[in-house]
Design a protein around this nucleic acid. Structure first.
Lengths: 106, 106
DNA sequence: ATAATATAACACCTTTTGGTTTTACGTCAA
DNA sequence: TTGACGTAAAACCAAAAGGTGTTATATTAT
């Protein structure tokens, strides 16, 4: 039970450059919406929508502190992308993946 | 010069589940459009559009062979995603990234 | 109490996405 | 050469994405 409601998957969430930049900002520090908005040339309303999409993918969460809402990063869902990617590593030449294949095969 | 025309970035390309499934199919074998289409419950035209988006991100390419167009995987652009992800690995606990941090810090 | 601040909630608009159907064009086989 | 096959191209459509501005609500400072 308790369906996780994950309306937006992480792949869609990171598809947008603005949202990737938000993640980078929050990787430095948790920040209130107004401060996040100040880094972009779009309205606070637009930024809020991006924040909601990121939150629905569980990549960030916000807590209310006084009149501010402070968002922080939760990078764990990126693990899904990492795992998806790992499948393809064996298809492009790369020192690390070649090493891995050497170990895994045989 | 010779601007690479990369109209669709790889993040957008992999955001769609259908396109990720196409990549998986092509990782097994190069395939003509009709065969790719047979794996989905949508029109060939729709699949072709997904193929174009993947091709614009340089993730696949198609060659014409007789009356068929055969697509094959080129996973190299996924490296951009891998590199982007690697920045965030230090933020979630993971045995490998913990080891890496141990080596890098101090 | 009042005014400024920070966010939330709406209503609205435009562009892109993801899909359809229809028509046309090469290619191959009979 | 006639027809079937595989694709390409175009017109069209609904819904989602990405943005705007306005209004409302809660909180803090004066």
């Amino acid at each position: 039970m308790a369906a996780p409601a994950e309306k937006h998957d992480v792949f869609k969430a990171i598809a947008d450059p603005t949202r990737r930049e938000v993640l980078r900002l929050l990787s430095e520090n948790e920040r209130p919406i107004s401060e996040i908005t100040s880094h972009f040339s779009m309205s606070r309303t637009a930024v809020t929508k991006h924040l909601q999409i990121l939150a629905e993918a569980d990549l960030i969460s916000g807590r209310k502190e006084g009149r501010e809402k402070i968002y922080q990063l939760h990078p764990e869902p990126l693990n899904e992308v990492k795992q998806w990617l790992s499948y393809y590593e064996k298809f492009w030449s790369n020192k690390l993946s070649m090493l891995k294949n050497l170990v895994e095969e045989d």
